[in-house]
Design a protein around this nucleic acid. Sequence first.
DNA 1: GAACCGTGGAT
DNA 2: TATCCAAGGTT
Length: 354
Amino acid sequence: MSSQKKSNQLPQKATHPLKPQAFADIVLQWQALHGRHDLPWQQPATPYRVLVSEIMLQQTQVSTVIPYFQRWLQAFPDLHSLANAEEDQVMALWQGLGYYSRARNLQKAAQYLTQEYQGEFPNSLTELEQIPGVGRYTAGAIRSFAFDDYGPIVDGNVRRLFCRFFAIAGAPLSSAVNKQLWQLAEQFTPQNNNRAFAQGLLDLGATVCTPKKPNCNDCPLQSNCIAFQQSRVDEFPNPKPKKTIPLRQGHFIWRVENSQIWLQRRPESGIWARLWSLPEVDGVPKGASLVGEFQHTFSHYKLQAKVWQHDHTHLQEPDANYVDHHWLPLEALDSVGLPTPIRQFLQAQLQAER
DNA sequence: GAACCGTGGAT
DNA sequence: TATCCAAGGTT
């Protein structure tokens, strides 16, 4: 048999009667009338501003990003100022946005582009993907938004819109579906008007083809949407398999003396990497009294934290064991990056002690 | 391929 | 309150 290759198990290739250029024309016409044209990073859409916004927007809503983007551009108006910035200032400006490796990668990206490309941006998708923190989506977004060149994108919006428009079944994040989505994105992305086309796809997904209760009656693609034609819009994308997240315990140390607080720079890897934090310890410290508790839910586990205060006999610290620990004046707290729940606890506690 | 990596908005 | 999920990338 020539079909030892189990071809019947391969994902069905999505097809559609609508020609790519016709699809693009519909998206472009809708974008001109109903799309978003006044987002901060659209005016002007310089490569640097597009890079910063795209990294911030990864897994983060537009409304959350806007104030961070404004503050960032104020502090780091260009690639060189970011490349030469202090790490603590970078992390302080990112605190609260989450996924902190994005911030460190963004500074690495600035240093990389400064050193390897003399502060210019490469134009090819392959070269763009070499930039730290830039993957396939972000490379396509930079090419579309910054250069108005051909740059296919598949993000959550495109994934949802395409799964409905082409009636693609299967786990939406599986490699099989992902492969189809990227193939379709490459096929249906036009050669011209790429900035408006990419913005149109995202805006359609964000404002019309929404996760719940999509506004199909406002959609310019309605009559061509396979899921709509079959009255199965609510079936796509297929529901993601849900996972239960584990519960973990955490223990932190509270020491405030002489208007200073004892902090630890967290390790290179793991949660809150390289942010400043209350020092974390493995278990309940000896002779400690409970100062307070907090809970925090991450994407992949839930943390139940207790904060402990030593009794006063442990004031001398052997320096070698605390290389990443420092006393920080309380008035300097705003100049370093702290994890959100740590900052919240700290503010509440200091308020209570006053 | 799967796990890891944050936080907040929306319902 | 619980759940989903947001302009994803890296390990």
